[in-house]
């Protein structure tokens, strides 16, 4: 193997193939950003130079459609899910892993069994349940069922395995309570795990479609995905405004990805190690 790298035809070809694939991957992003500055016809026409319609598109996105409300709804729902999900699932993973008992392991086994159940199979009884409690068309209906995640419990439990039990024993000898062991000793050293779980929970809720589609009826309750989907069913579509809303919905995920690539990929890939 030579240390000096030369541009052999093979390497040139593989970089060319990769560059073409990368261009296809990136193109829709470029197109949607440019689309925010074009008038609706130019979005379709195949123009890839920025236009001058950004301000008027923004006006439509916030006037004709209620982008600030959709964004606020999406943020509120996703952040609530993350906060409650980290607390509930983190606690469960800690309990299952660090307080071993046969009975709890059996409960955990039952939880794991349901991992293969697709969402479509449980939305009907859930819809009837939320109708019964008069909670349809509320944000609670979206947040509550997505707090507990068997997958997150599993993922966090796998990571808790790496935390040495001896340290907990030592803290007990020093008179620390179980709760303070979790909060003061375990939690601070498991930040990466919590970050990955938070990203996973955030993405799942930020992008969720089916359940909000079933439960949300009013415009003022809509999240970004529901708002985008219903824009597509309108007779006339304001493409410029649509592109702004699409950009706004992609931006937080993109920022999350660029700033926390490592945890982001760990959160996506889950427990593959």
């Amino acid at each position: 193997m030579s240390v000096v790298r030369s541009w052999t035809p093979g390497r040139l070809a593989s970089v060319a193939v990769l560059a073409a694939a990368a261009a296809i991957s990136v193109f829709p992003f470029v197109w949607m950003v440019i689309g925010t500055t074009l008038n609706p016809n130019d979005v379709l026409r195949g123009i890839l130079a920025p236009g001058r319609e950004l301000a008027s598109n923004w006006e439509k996105a916030t006037g004709m459609y209620d982008l600030p409300t959709f964004l606020a709804n999406s943020l509120k729902i996703a952040l609530l899910t993350v906060a409650l999900g980290l607390a509930v699932n983190g606690l469960a993973a800690f309990g299952f892993e660090k307080y071993p008992s046969k009975a709890r392991d059996r409960v955990f086994g039952v939880l794991l069994l349901t991992l293969i159940i697709p969402q479509i199979a449980i939305v009907i009884p859930m819809f009837r349940m939320f109708a019964f409690f008069k909670l349809l068309n509320t944000h609670a209906a979206i947040v509550l069922p997505s707090i507990m995640s068997v997958f997150i419990i599993f993922f966090m439990r796998q990571n808790f395995k790496m935390f040495p039990t001896e340290i907990m024993e030592a803290a007990r000898v020093d008179g620390a309570s179980e709760l303070s062991i979790l909060l003061r000793i375990v939690l601070p050293s498991m930040q990466a795990t919590f970050a990955s779980a938070a990203i996973y929970l955030f993405l799942g809720q930020w992008n969720s479609y089916l359940w909000p589609l079933i439960t949300i009826l009013g415009d003022e309750m809509k999240t970004l995905p529901i708002a985008m989907a219903s824009m597509m069913s309108a007779y006339t579509i304001e493409y410029g405004a649509l592109m702004i809303i699409v950009c706004v919905s992609v931006l937080p995920v993109l920022l999350l990805f660029l700033t926390m690539q490592k945890q982001f990929v760990a959160g996506l890939l889950g427990s593959v190690k």
């Binding site: 699932n89 606690l91 469960a92 939880l111 349901t114 507990m148």
Partner: peptide
């Protein structure tokens, strides 16, 4: 304490 930890998840489940 172990049961207490898993209780909220089991309830939601």
């Amino acid at each position: 304490f172990g049961w207490l930890c898993v209780a909220p998840s089991v309830f939601l489940f």
